[in-house]
Every structure is written in structure tokens, then in C-alpha cells.
Design a binder for these strands. Structure first.
Length: 482
RNA sequence: GCGAAAGUAGCUCAUUUGGUAGAGCACGACCUUGCCAAGGUCGGGGUGGCCGGUUCGAGCCCGGUCUUUCGCUCCA
């Protein structure tokens, strides 16, 4: 895999995203915050359009899928039930020489065993007792001092050159209420899925849903990643678009295949070529899944996951039954039986989809002009239905009544879709500016418009132009974006 | 987290050995023009990522720190 050309493209895309108001580093005037980004005027609109398109495809085009919007905060027990609390709260320490990472408790226990072998049982017991006390208090400084005082060394490098102790907890936490010492810790959700599971019966009953049916949701999730990188690809705060599809146990294989195919169709419906996509089957499955696949896209930095389709079995609902002591079952009138439904999940990262659209659309194009010289432009080939601006309305000059005509068209069209009006600078320059933000159509009002009511429409991708009646512009654009 | 590289105007970059910063594009106003990045005049914008050190003097040398990209590691 050659790195250099694609690195340059990626850099160029990041620069372009900033220069044209798509994505800014967060809190940039304070040097930014690692792996956090803000969406600018065109970026937020593009992101919203992607979200809306997904939402319509899920909840509008499928009669058996409904939406919800759950809170980011959830009852702390949710995360015990989901399995997020355990397994990810162990303090870790790295040896700087060997680069080997240890769980602190394992490191100290290993040393205690050596003491026992040497017959120093009392010292070993003391060490472990000290460790337990410090672990209970999350006293990392004390633990490091304990390691240093006991001259515990790395078994590979043999040195005692340790980093600070860190706790790599996946979830961000905060305190609910005003009194922190009440230990009423709540977490920022690390995935949106649990908001759907805990509402399973509320939704099923109130919307009178029959299995098989789905619940869709978009929203922010938060993960305290150890390394977050590659622009907006891996962020600590990100937005998910996901749908949990509830099915009869035993039918999960066919529904898994169904949604695998459906989701790929959705991606291809945005006009992206199939060779940029591939499936990646999970070999090592997560604790909740009996089958899992990633839809990967070829980003400038290689094939990476955009969306996951997981067969989550009845793991989540069963666990919530256990922890809440409330039944989360469905009565299937066809077979006259209660059961806990199985679940197929489709989960796509909105920010990753944004980056996908941006990198797939970005082109530095060389134009061969009629006089033999060449010219260049940067153009974003956004699919028309998700482009931030649909139409730019440009009077050829700012006098002779042309702006007035253009404003009329503007007033007509802006009720239906996002339009952009500009009368500054030469027409060619204005076209290029619209190319750079991915506006699919430009309309120019000229002197002929006053005579016969026609305008020039110029297409972003082909740069071709043709004359059409001004009163047909709105319907023509609507045709392309619906 | 470890290692490497980088950070100068909104963007891309100059400023060869230390002597208090420039260009192109972009941006604003006006004039001229009018169908693919036109020309002219004028103008706004940088305490050189940040902090400290060496020096008579630091964008440049040294240390630290933040941010970004890349490689490894991690990714329930």
C-alpha cells in the first residue's frame, strides 16, 4: 500500500474541510482539544442531511421501523447489565524500556508470589494487603510508590522505569446531583443501543409493533479512547445512527443476511462505487454477538469500518431483565408464546459517514481548456440529495434589474431547499466557489432572462450548461434531490 | 501509551549560516468588465502553537508542553 500520495490527499481534504467551513478543530483558539472537532456552516448541514437521509430510509421507508430519541444519561445499572462497567476499570502501568503494559494488580501479585517462593510469607501478605487498600481507594500514586518501594521490576527489561499508573476506563463519568461524595456516578453513554433496549416494551406497546420490527435512533455517544486519531474518524465524542431489529429467536441468520444486504444497498444508493466497499466478517465475536460483520470503506488511509451489523441474540434484553427484574418479553400471537426477542443491530457512525462522503466526493480536477491551456478546480461531488446547498442563484451582473429577478427565484426556491445567492465577482469564480462546497446546480440570470424568461443552468460535475425556463428551475432541482 | 515527523496570515508555503516577517490564493471597499478561478487602485489580517532557557539580539539553537499526521499498541 503506497502511503505518500494518499496521505497528501487526506491532508488536502482536512485543509479543505477547514477552509470551506466543514470541520474545525474544537476550541482552536486554545490550541484545540485532542480528537474533538466542531462542524461548521456547510459541515453541519451536510451532517444533518446524511442523518436525515438515513432516518427517512429507516423510519419512513419501512413501516415496521419506528424512531426514538433517548437521553444520553441513563441509570447506572444499565451499564452493569450491558457489561460496560466490568472489564474496563483496571489500572494499568507501562514499563518505559520494554514497552510492556501490565495490569497493576497482576504485577504486584506476581511479585508477592516471588516473595512467597523465597519464604517471605509475611512480606507478601503485607504487600497484598497494602495493594488491596490502595486499589480500593483508587490511589494510583500510592500504588506506584508501592511498586517502587518494593523494587518491582519488569520481567522483560528488568528495569523499574515505569510510567504513571493510568486507568483506561472506556466510559466518561460525572456526578448526578450536587453532592459528588454521594458517589452517584453516572456515565455518558458509550453506545446508543441501550436506550433502545430499555425502552423495548414502551415502544412495542405504544406504537403497537409486531415482531419483526425495528427501533431506530440517532445520537451522541462517548468513548474515552486511548488513542483517537485520523481526523474525525475516531473521536471521543461521536454520533451514531443505529437500528435494533427485534425478531423471533431462531430467525437471526436470515435477518442478519437481510440487513447485511439492505445496508450495503443503502450505501450504494448514494452513488458510491461498489469497489470502494467490502465486508469484513468478525472472527473474534464480542460477548453479546453470535455473528458480526463490518462494512468497510476505502478511506484515503485504507479500508476502515463505517458500519457494523451485529446479531446480538437476546443478550441485552435478557440482561436487562435480570438486572431490572422486569420482564422484557413479547407475546407472539402467531404461536401463542412469550419469548425474549433476538436482535439484529445495524450501527453506523455518522461522523465516519461524513468523512466517507467527503473523501469520496473530493477531487482535484485538471481542466483542458479550448485554447490548449489547462486549469484546475477542487470540486466536491456530493450526491445532490445530501449536498449542503442545492442551488446557487447568480445574477450575471449586479445591475440592469438582474439581482431583482434572481431574488424572485431565490424567494421561490428557498422554501423548498437550501439556496445560495451571490452577485460578487466574475461568474467563473463564483462557479468555482460553489464547486468547492459541492453545490450541484448553479443558475445564472442574464439579460436574456429579461426577454424570454430563460436562465442558464450549470451542472457541477460536467460543467455543462443549458438554458431552461426560469419557472422550471425549482421543479428540476426537486427532481434531483428527492 | 511508545517512536518518528511537523506547527509562520483563512489555505498553500517562502524567509540559506540567529539581526524584531514576505508571496500566491482567499477576504473587504471602489472602478472597469460580464458565462468557467479577469484587470486595476486601496485596505484588513501574523506578540512565528504555547511556556521557559542560551544570547546584546531567537521564527531559526536548547528544554518542556499542546496540537496534528504517520508507524506500532489498543479498539469491550
Amino acid at each position: 500500500m503506497s502511503k505518500t500520495p494518499s496521505d497528501n490527499t487526506f491532508q488536502a481534504i482536512i485543509s479543505h474541510a477547514k477552509e470551506y467551513g466543514f470541520v474545525f478543530p474544537s476550541s482552536e483558539i486554545y490550541d484545540g482539544l485532542s480528537a474533538v472537532y466542531d462542524y461548521g456552516p456547510y459541515g453541519s448541514q451536510l451532517k444533518k442531511n446524511i442523518r436525515d437521509y438515513w432516518w427517512a430510509c429507516m423510519t419512513q421507508m419501512n413501516e415496521n421501523i419506528v424512531g426514538i430519541d433517548a437521553a444520553i444519561f441513563m441509570h447506572p445499572t444499565t451499564w452493569k447489565a450491558s457489561g460496560h462497567v466490568d472489564g474496563f476499570s483496571d489500572p494499568l502501568i507501562d514499563n518505559k524500556d520494554s514497552k510492556k503494559r501490565y495490569r497493576v494488580d497482576h504485577l504486584i501479585e506476581g511479585h508477592a508470589e516471588k516473595l512467597v517462593e523465597r519464604g517471605e510469607q509475611v512480606a507478601a501478605d503485607n504487600l497484598l494487603a497494602n495493594m488491596d487498600a490502595l486499589l480500593a481507594k483508587d490511589d494510583f500514586e500510592g500504588l506506584k510508590k508501592l511498586i517502587e518501594d518494593n523494587k518491582i521490576h519488569c520481567s522483560i527489561s528488568g528495569t523499574g522505569n515505569w510510567t504513571e499508573i493510568r486507568q483506561f476506563n472506556l466510559m466518561f463519568s460525572t456526578e448526578l446531583g450536587s453532592v459528588a461524595e454521594d458517589a452517584n456516578t453516572i456515565y455518558l453513554r458509550p453506545e446508543t443501543a441501550q436506550g433502545i433496549f430499555v425502552n423495548f416494551l414502551n415502544v412495542q406497546k405504544t406504537a403497537r409493533m409486531k415482531i419483526p420490527f425495528g427501533i431506530a435512533q440517532t445520537g451522541k455517544a462517548f468513548r474515552n479512547e486511548i488513542v483517537a486519531r485520523q481526523f474525525i474518524f475516531r473521536m471521543r465524542e461521536f454520533e451514531q445512527m443505529e437500528m435494533q431489529f427485534f425478531i423471533k429467536p431462531g430467525t437471526q441468520k436470515e435477518w442478519y443476511e437481510h440487513w447485511k444486504a439492505e445496508r450495503m444497498k443503502w450505501h450504494l444508493s448514494l452513488g458510491i462505487t461498489a469497489d470502494k466497499y467490502r465486508f469484513h466478517d468478525h472472527v473474534k465475536l464480542a460477548h453479546y454477538a453470535d455473528a458480526a460483520v463490518d462494512i468497510e470503506f476505502e478511506f484515503p488511509f485504507g479500508f476502515k469500518e463505517v458500519e457494523g451489523i451485529h446479531s446480538r441474540t437476546d443478550f441485552d434484553l435478557t440482561r436487562h431483565q435480570e438486572f431490572s427484574k422486569k420482564k422484557l418479553q413479547y407475546f407472539d400471537t402467531e404461536i401463542n408464546q412469550h419469548y425474549v426477542p433476538y436482535v439484529i443491530e445495524t450501527s453506523i457512525g455518522l461522523d465516519r459517514m461524513f468523512l466517507l462522503i467527503l473523501s469520496n466526493s473530493y477531487e482535484e480536477e485538471t481542466i483542458n481548456k479550448e485554447d490548449g491551456t489547462t486549469d484546475s478546480r477542487v470540486v466536491l461531488h456530493f450526491p445532490a440529495r445530501i449536498a449542503p446547498n442545492k442551488l446557487a442563484i447568480l445574477p450575471l451582473t449586479k445591475k440592469d434589474g438582474l439581482p431583482e429577478l434572481a431574488k424572485e427565484l431565490m424567494d421561490e426556491c428557498k422554501k423548498s431547499f437550501h439556496c445560495f445567492y451571490e452577485e460578487k465577482d466574475a461568474i467563473g469564480k463564483r462557479y468555482r466557489r460553489q464547486d468547492a462546497i459541492g453545490t450541484p446546480f448553479c443558475v445564472t440570470i442574464d439579460h436574456q432572462t429579461k426577454e424570454d424568461g430563460t436562465v442558464t443552468i450549470r451542472y457541477r460535475d460536467s460543467m455543462l450548461q443549458e438554458r431552461i425556463p426560469m419557472n422550471k428551475v425549482k421543479s428540476m432541482v426537486l427532481e434531483h434531490i428527492s
